[in-house]
Amino acid sequence: MDFSKLNAAEQAHMTKYIEKKQMHDFMNLYAGLVERCFTSCCSDFTSKALSGKEETCVMNCADKFLKHTERVGARFAEHNAETMNEAASSFKQ
């Protein structure tokens, strides 16, 4: 994402918007993680307490999902950088 064409006031506005968005994205990540790991790990409702096995599964699920998201983020950033370079060099021609 390239916001260098924006003026100072616009960039300040975007910074404020991005701060709100990060808060919102974090809450979404949190809620999504709970739903995902609960769905994958909890299938026994003969008790309302989380069993040791379920808890391990939930913790592994959360760790793994965060590492997965990080890895996708790294590939995503590489791809975007490449695309920008291609766009930049096609402008030079």
């Binding site: 790991c37 609960f38 909890c42 309302k48 307490a49 989380l50 939930v58």
Partner: peptide, 12 residues
């Protein structure tokens, strides 16, 4: 299910 969901919510 609701009770367990809250427990998972807390742990995470």
């Amino acid at each position: 299910c609701v009770a367990k969901f809250f427990e998972v919510n807390k742990k995470i």
